[in-house]
Amino acid sequence: MSNGNRNEEGVSRRDFLGLAAFGAAILASLGALAGSLRFVKSNVYSEESKKFKIGKIENFPIGTTRSIDGKSVFIFSDDNGLFAISAVCTHLGCIVYPTEAGFQCPCHGSKYNQDGKVIGGPAPRPLEWFEISQEVDGTLFVDAGKAVPNGTKYIFA
C-alpha cells in the first residue's frame, strides 16, 4: 500500500485510511485467531478430578503406607508428618511398585529410594510429591495436580 506515493494532494489521507483499515483488519483477525486457538484448549477433561479425599488424619497413624485405589499415589505417615508420593515413573509414565528399598518401575527398570529419589535406571527426576490439604471440616485431600518440593511433609492437628 506504500506504492501510491504520487505527488498528489490527499495521498497522505488515503494512506492513512489504508493504514487504519489494514491495521484494524489485522488486529481483528488476530483477535479472532487468538480466540479460536483458545477454543482448542479444553476447559474440562472427561476424567476424574485430580483432587481426591483420603479421609481423616486418624486413619493415618505414624508408620502408615497406603496406596489409594486407582489414583497412582502412595500416602505415607512418619514422625515428621504426612506426605504423598506419586506412583508415576518420571521416565515414561509407567506405574512404580513399592519395594524394600523404595520404588521400582517395571517398564525400563528405574529405581527410586523411599523418598522417591532416583537410585538407578533411566528416570531423569525423582518421583513427584503432592500437596495434601485439609478441608474446613478436617477431611484431608490430595491434589495430584499440584506438585510440591520433595520432602514436604504435612502435620495436621
Partner: peptide
C-alpha cells in the same frame, strides 16, 4: 473498499 474494510474491521473487532 478501504472504507468498507475499516468499518468491517471495527465491527469485527
Amino acid at each position: 473498499y478501504l472504507s468498507l474494510l475499516l468499518i468491517s474491521s471495527l465491527v469485527l473487532l
